[in-house]
């Protein structure tokens, strides 16, 4: 078995008395496509934010290549959020160029002359691969939601991060456009071989896209103290071996916690 790229060892996350995650033990290898589902408030976003470096574990360990996760965001982990992932004051091309400019010009964050031309060349290739070559000079507010997310993906992938984190990236899109986006993300994943974590609230999307599906859910529910127990990974499924009955079982178990939390 290959060495795990990411490993969680009895990971806990608490905010005061509120336990969000408890006893998460998991290993992820390079190149996996992990989709994460769960009810709202189940801690899936907290887990993603820990991978991002914005949150730190309360107890336990979270390891990246055998070392503790960096405590702040960095360029080895790209991210696409549901909203606000692109910069409204930059055109499509400049949004895509930004990462190169950050890396090559530490003082001004701007490239000029030949370096700029070379970087623009690469940015245009990247934009071509996400199908945005025709809107290079437009600002994000002139683009549709789907195009904005394509731009966010291009922007995140241009420097080839090791890990891509997606927080409900297609949640706000129409079904038809979502299907296009699925093709796009699967294509990019096949090409680059990077590890992807994607949160979704759509179980079908999770099964369709991932090589591995996680369900975050509470094992113990205490009506007197709903926040005393945190969530953990209740299902960890190799998506290759799925059956219809399993799909229904997950849906049922999530429905139970959803009802519980709404009370």
């Amino acid at each position: 078995m290959a060495v795990a790229q990411i490993e969680a060892k009895s990971l806990w996350k608490e905010y005061g008395d509120n336990t969000v995650l408890e006893q998460v033990n998991v290993q992820v290898e390079k190149g996996e496509f992990i989709t994460i589902v769960g009810t709202s408030g189940c801690g899936k976003t907290t887990f993603l934010r820990m991978l991002l470096g914005v949150e730190q574990p309360s107890r336990g360990e979270l390891l990246l290549d055998g070392k503790a996760f960096p405590a702040e965001p960095g360029d080895d982990r790209g991210v696409v959020f549901q909203r606000y992932s692109v910069f409204p004051h930059l055109t499509v091309l400049k949004n895509t160029l930004l990462s190169e400019e950050f890396h090559q010009s530490r003082l001004l964050g701007k490239l000029f002359g030949q370096k700029k031309e070379q970087a623009e060349e690469r940015a245009k290739e990247m934009l071509e691969s996400v199908g945005l070559s025709h809107v290079l000079g437009q600002y994000p507010h002139q683009l549709s939601g789907g195009m904005q997310q394509r731009l966010a993906i291009a922007q995140a992938l241009i420097r080839k991060p090791k890990i891509l984190l997606l927080d409900e990236p297609f949640g706000a899109l129409d079904p038809g456009i979502r299907a296009d986006m699925h093709d796009l993300i699967l294509g990019l994943w096949n090409e680059t071989g990077l590890t992807i974590f994607m949160i979704t609230h759509d179980l079908r999307e999770g099964f369709y896209l991932g090589t591995r599906l996680w369900v975050f859910d509470k094992i113990r529910l205490d009506p007197q103290c709903p926040h005393c127990f945190g969530s953990t990974i209740t299902y960890d499924i190799d998506v290759g071996q799925t059956k219809g009955s399993l799909f229904q079982a997950i849906d049922h178990s999530l429905e139970d916690s959803r009802k519980f939390l709404v009370q």
Partner: peptide
């Protein structure tokens, strides 16, 4: 400014200074 923007800039390799000059100042 949305937190997402500042986080995204950091994942693109920006230092505090670069976040200021390329993301915050122009906006």
């Amino acid at each position: 400014l949305p937190d997402e923007q500042l986080i995204k800039a950091q994942t693109l390799g920006a230092s505090s200074w670069l976040v200021i000059v390329r993301v915050v100042l122009p906006q």
